[in-house]
Amino acid sequence: MSKRVIIMNFDVESQAYQAFSEVKKLHVGRQIKGEQMAVITHNNDGAHQFKINDFLDFTGNDHTSKDSLIGMVIGILGGPLGVLLGWFAGSLIGATQDAKEIQGAQSIFEFLTEKIAEGQTGLIMIAEEDDNRQLNHLIMNDLGGEITRLEYENVTKEIEKAKAVEKKVKEAANDAWMDDKKNTDTN
């Protein structure tokens, strides 16, 4: 059994909600073993924010959307690192010392912004799969959507990289702010 982060995208918003409902039924029928699932929207307001519209923790651990892996991904996308790196409009960093580290941290986030484009609504689910046929049939055949599977371990590694880079960026910004303040105070 392989634990995966599954991204599902659709042409029509209502299909994402229908998929959310149908996937719950697959879980109840033990046809899939889900951990968490969320309906997310990539806002079409120019701010490039993602919003979690509905969230379900299948495990019964009462995770909220914010303390879930899905919430972490969405938080990083909408946080200062996502804005700084310009995941939506190309990198603003350029050729810095940390460019390779930053580039590695971008892949899951860039991928998500490509799959669920501005104005679109989709699903993200964390699940263990023995057989992916039921979910594939539902998403691709019944609802006409796309489905992409990413290895859970790879996604968690990328989140950790992004958090580390975000911490460095915050520290560097704080140091620069304090240096500027010292220079202003001494003049």
Rank of each mutant, 00 (worst) to 15 (best):
N9D: 08
S65K: 09
A16T: 02
A47P: 08
A162E: 10
V23P: 06
Q15V: 02
Y17H: 07
Q106T: 10
E129G: 01
M1Y: 00
S21W: 02
I147E: 02
N141R: 11
A19F: 03
Q134H: 15
G34D: 09
Q18K: 12
E110K: 13
E153N: 08
A38F: 02
Q134V: 09
D57P: 00
T186E: 15
S2L: 13
D142H: 05
I102W: 01
Q103C: 00
Q18A: 07
E35C: 03
D11N: 09
M37H: 00
L85E: 12
V73F: 04
D98N: 04
I32P: 05
A89T: 07
F50G: 14
N136I: 05
G75F: 01
S107N: 13
H42G: 04
H137S: 11
Q106H: 14
D180E: 15
N136C: 06
A89S: 09
Q31N: 13
A127Y: 00
H137N: 07
R30A: 11
M37R: 02
A95C: 11
I52D: 08
I147T: 10
I124T: 15
H27T: 09
I52A: 15
E146G: 12
L92I: 09
G144I: 05
A16E: 00
E158F: 01
L77F: 06
I108P: 04
T64W: 02
N43W: 06
V165E: 14
F109Q: 00
T156S: 05
I93Q: 14
E153V: 03
K161E: 09
E129I: 06
A105E: 14
T156V: 13
S14I: 10
V155C: 03
F20Q: 01
V83C: 03
A16N: 00
L138F: 01
L92E: 12
I108R: 05
D179Y: 11
